[in-house]
Design a binder for these strands. Sequence first.
DNA 1: ACCCTCCATAAGTGATGCTGATGCCCGTCG
DNA 2: CGACGGGCATCAGCATCACTTATGGAGGGT
Lengths: 292, 292
Amino acid sequence: MRMDPHLLRTYVAVARLASFSAAARELGYTQSAVSQHIAALEQDLGTPLLGRRPVAPTRAGERLLEHAGPLLLRLDAARAEVTALAGAPDEGLTLAATPTALTPRTLRALPPTGVTLRVLPRADVPEAVATGAAHLGLVDGLAAPNDPLRLADVAPLTTRGAGQEPVRVLLPAGHPLARRTGLRLGDLADARWLDAPGAGLPLHQLRAAHGTGGFRPALRYEGTDVRTLIGLAAAGHGLVLLPESAAAAPGTGTVAVPLTEPRVVHRTEVVHTGELRGAAAAFAVRLDITRS
Amino acid sequence: MRMDPHLLRTYVAVARLASFSAAARELGYTQSAVSQHIAALEQDLGTPLLGRRPVAPTRAGERLLEHAGPLLLRLDAARAEVTALAGAPDEGLTLAATPTALTPRTLRALPPTGVTLRVLPRADVPEAVATGAAHLGLVDGLAAPNDPLRLADVAPLTTRGAGQEPVRVLLPAGHPLARRTGLRLGDLADARWLDAPGAGLPLHQLRAAHGTGGFRPALRYEGTDVRTLIGLAAAGHGLVLLPESAAAAPGTGTVAVPLTEPRVVHRTEVVHTGELRGAAAAFAVRLDITRS
DNA sequence: ACCCTCCATAAGTGATGCTGATGCCCGTCG
DNA sequence: CGACGGGCATCAGCATCACTTATGGAGGGT
């Protein structure tokens, strides 16, 4: 009758699988129960949420979907945070990070033992921290110097800067612009770009930094491996923006040219919930000490 | 057993009122039910949330409180958005706005009839829009030119710029700096300031714009009336930052000096959910046409 | 010392949320 | 064209749950 998390969870499962019975199997209910869940939701909200045959969200249902995900995520985050406070401080340190956030400097600050490193696409890092899957997150992105990064706030997360470095454009060795000593982003708006939301810097950040459109993706890479990304750039599949430390790759057939315009830096930030305890706190301190 | 919205709602009520029985009265339950709700939550999360006698949140409880508010808010937002889509488009237009966002230009764009104007403190505007209490919101704040405002995202809200204007410092007529033709924020960090989160620009935005601390509040004004605020400034209770259009107030015993440094503007933005329909859409279009 | 307030607990009851069975609709295939 | 089958809706039955009322116990104030 009221918008129970249970009902929402069933709803997203049904919407995702486009099937009542499949959702029932996944959730360990009977098909009947799922049907009643959806009926309860629809009656509560006073509007149909799913078209049957085929099972697909209505317009109202799509709206609900936009809310349901973050809602359930935040619910998990709340539970994780509260229960973490109850239990003893965890041994070890689980760190969620984007691949390019793992600069030599951050890696050096890691404690020698007890570390679990979890490399994730950029968008999944805050989520991992919020739900307690990681004690600490490292995210990176493009920003004006000394400006904070803009993160989607799934939950109240604390962030602090963990370093900045120049940005470089990665070009295949034979590229006409490869001899330049500096490049301006505006001159590259019409070039072929790699869209690598998991590994490189996502194109929408380029558009935001440059202020307008352009930057059409030639190839989309969904992995998190920077070496592969560099390989793609070397093979001429498109340009990528990388932090200096990741772009310096002799022998890969690429050239990394500094970006001169606009004045943006590759910024990496530590993100965590509440207060830090144990190994996570120690790591944060060591990062702070070596801050560039 | 599971983190039911009901349980969260009673939890926040108990925490706010610091009393089980008072919360029970407010929610229309018996005291016993409230007690069971809290017990269920505490058992589910495996940790005490409230100290009794006096009733006050534990550390874990405080964490939960941080999540519970936004969570419940977003639940309401989801319900509002879905049910709004179900019913017929509303007649009229309800507009939630901060007082200083209501510049002459925005007021001129209002349709001649059917408007309900709801002036709220800055922080409440996105909430009003998200929960459907208003069709449209107008928020303002300090930003670098052409930078978007940073709003707390209680729900996926769409924003678009609705105008910018210069910022002025309001000084009492006899103030030593009143003769200046321009002022720098850095020179005023140690002055007495009015903290007016509802009416003027909140001090924390000043600190953010200036990059450091300072800007200690001399008096805090919690209303939403700009005339009163100007009166306070005239009486020497402190300085305020206001958009040009609000600061031009001859005969009030104040002088409005342009702010030259840092380069920030008073920016106002329209905020709304999903797509606009009816009068709200028309208003947004008219705002766009007259965009400065 | 007593009482009064306030929270916890126990027992009872109506409502709820599940399961299993069955019905109905529609697409598919013989 | 009719029979079959997959998939969602509906129904009845039952176990559990979420309330209520009633009572107990702990503190603080007079």
